[in-house]
């Protein structure tokens, strides 16, 4: 058969080359192994994107109501720490709602003028609550994004944990539940093993992730055993970033609450987009000091808070990265048998 390719006559090869014979003595179906592994073992899922965190949050919330709270109330021995932390989402949500509700829940008793001013206060409080959550989320997002770009450590990486439970209530076998924790949730016990296995299965080398991190750290020659050197750096990044985020996210949240308490938000009408835009514009101007003439501090407090949030966000990006990129005098490429390790 002849084919036209850029006007030049080409001839298709009709006899394909034979497939290379595997070196081992038996046939490995890698795809099947991957499939079974994904079904039964804890693993890092391939597809992780922008919506992963939202999906994990939704997964936790649904399971809270359906599974975790009932297990907790029954006193089940299968209720573990992951479930306890997931249950912590619920008071966060309900509490925010309650703070707004207590400001305006009694409105039906008040006459028009009092009701209006109570609604105004409730609107400002509502904006404050919403912006509080937004501020915390924004700070963490920006900080993690920066750290990921500079060190190739995705601190938000999630994995699927197959939790095999003990049998309950006279059953023979326990249920296997799916949990979605983060790879780097713990500082001392981050899931090194999953990263290695994932690297081996999907990218060809157990040290795939560690080599990428080493490259970002500025280590030129390939390390024989990256674990020793890189694990220390990963723990350092995680510890510093989380410590700084745990303080910084509340500073950003405080700034957002301060923004939400401006008078302009007392008149916001949530049904009209134009009203929302106007309120934000006016609110921002008031936040930066317009109409506040009582004293110097009064006028510039908003700007100070804004500056503090920006500084804290930048610091929670820069400090871990700087510490990450520090090079020691001698780079250990071999495992050190004399190094002491702590047994907990």
């Amino acid at each position: 058969m002849c084919v036209r390719c850029f006007g030049v006559k080409m001839q298709r090869i009709t006899n394909p080359v034979a497939k290379p014979v595997p070196k081992t003595g038996y046939y490995i179906d890698k795809e099947k192994i991957k499939e079974e592994h994904a079904k039964n073992e804890s693993h890092i899922p391939q597809k992780q994107g922008f919506l992963t965190n939202a999906k994990v949050y939704a997964h936790k919330l649904t399971n809270d109501v359906v599974t975790y709270f009932p297990k907790g109330f029954q006193g089940s021995k299968n209720s573990d720490f992951y479930e306890y932390l997931s249950m912590g989402i619920v008071p966060n949500l309900i509490g925010s709602f309650m703070l707004i509700y207590t400001s305006c829940g009694a409105n039906k008793f008040f006459n028009a003028q009092d009701s209006a001013s109570a609604s105004k206060g409730a609107k400002m409080m509502g904006m404050g609550v919403v912006l509080f959550a937004l501020g915390k989320w924004l700070h963490s997002k920006i900080s993690n994004f920066g750290v990921k770009k500079s060190t190739d450590i995705n601190l938000e990486q999630k994995y699927i944990n197959k939790n095999a439970e003990l049998p309950e209530n006279g059953e023979k076998q326990g249920i296997v539940r799916e949990q979605k924790p983060g790879v780097y949730d713990s500082v001392t016990f981050f899931r090194d093993d999953l990263l290695a296995y994932d690297g081996e299965l999907n990218h060809g080398s157990r040290y795939y992730y560690k080599d990428k991190i080493a490259k970002k750290a500025g280590i030129d020659k390939p390390l024989n055993s990256p674990d020793q050197e890189i694990n220390k750096r990963i723990r350092g990044v995680k510890a510093r970033t989380t410590a700084l985020q745990n303080i910084g996210k509340y500073i950003v949240a405080a700034t957002c609450v301060a923004l939400g308490s401006q008078e302009a938000f007392g008149e916001i009408n949530f049904r009209s987009l134009k009203s929302i835009k106007n309120s934000f514009k006016k609110g921002f101007k008031q936040f930066l000091g317009e109409g506040k003439d009582r004293s110097f501090i009064h006028k510039h407090a908003g700007k100070a808070l804004l500056g503090l949030s920006v500084v804290s966000t930048l610091l929670s990006w820069l400090i871990p990265v700087i510490a990450f990129k520090q090079k020691p005098d001698t780079l250990k490429t071999q495992l050190d048998p004399n190094k002491e390790t702590e047994v907990c």
């Binding site: 001392t188 723990r235 510890a239 510093r240 989380t242 410590a243 745990n246 509340y250 500073i251 510490a323």
Partner: peptide, 22 residues
């Protein structure tokens, strides 16, 4: 911040500290 070494429990307690500051 200085050494990058901390236990998980203490890392969680920094969250409470941040909440008080906020």
């Amino acid at each position: 911040i200085k050494t990058g070494e901390i236990t998980d429990n203490n890392l969680g307690r920094i969250n409470d500290l941040g909440m008080k500051l906020g």
